[in-house]
């Protein structure tokens, strides 16, 4: 499974019986009425982004910066519409300010999916260092976060975490580990 996910899936996988990681995430978002999806892309997220764009239930679009995307979904939530932000590890590294000055103090259930670069075969030293800043930042704000490594645990963790974020009005970061997605390996 894992290695095949490094390439963009040729077939949009949207059937409810779909058991790819991105199919499960898409269905879990839909089931939880999360329809606004701004993102800054990551290679690994490509099949998810593509299938979200293809599904009219979602308003999926690129933002110029991750903190901008956080602002958008925060405003949308206050207006009664749920969203989630997709990003890679380096995108998360730009977020400490907006987490600490908007999402946390205003109690906004910010839902983040972070494709984890920088570990398990990283080829770029900068990426691996950036990755090491992520969990200390999350822990310093006592933010809920889960690193998802197994396909059979994905739906449970994602679904429960989204519901917990909404009901406790607290942000959550779901970190998509290379063991789940296949990650990105050296490609020249």
């Amino acid at each position: 499974m894992a290695t095949a996910e490094q390439q963009t899936s040729p077939q949009p996988a949207q059937a409810s019986g779909d058991k790819t990681w991105h199919g499960i995430i898409l269905q879990t978002l839909k089931r939880n009425a999360i329809s606004l999806i701004p993102y800054v892309p990551d290679r690994v997220l490509t099949p998810l982004i593509k299938n979200l764009h293809a599904d009219p239930f979602f308003t999926t679009f690129a933002a110029a910066r991750e903190e901008e995307a956080v602002g958008i979904v925060s405003g949308a939530w206050m207006g009664g519409r749920r969203g989630a932000v997709l990003m890679q590890t380096s995108g998360f590294a730009t977020l400490a300010n907006v987490l600490a000055s908007l999402a946390v103090p205003y109690q906004i259930p910010l839902i983040m999916f972070v494709s984890e670069r920088g570990t398990l075969g990283e080829f770029n030293y900068g990426q691996s260092l950036v990755c090491r800043t992520m969990r200390p930042v999350l822990d310093s704000l006592a933010l809920e976060h889960h690193t998802i490594t197994r396909l059979d645990e994905l739906e449970f963790i994602a679904d429960r975490s989204i519901k917990q974020a909404v009901t406790t009005q607290a942000p959550v970061a779901l970190i998509l580990n290379p063991l789940l997605t296949g990650g990105k390996v050296f490609d020249k």
Binding site: E68, G71, I72, A76, W77, M78, N97, L102
Partner: peptide
């Protein structure tokens, strides 16, 4: 009215989110 106490630069993105959530307002 919504008042920002930080997150410098995000007034337009926050407003965009509200506008997308409530297209009639």
């Amino acid at each position: 009215n919504f008042y920002m106490l930080g997150s410098m630069g995000l007034a337009f993105p926050i407003a965009l989110g509200v506008a997308l959530a409530q297209p009639e307002r």
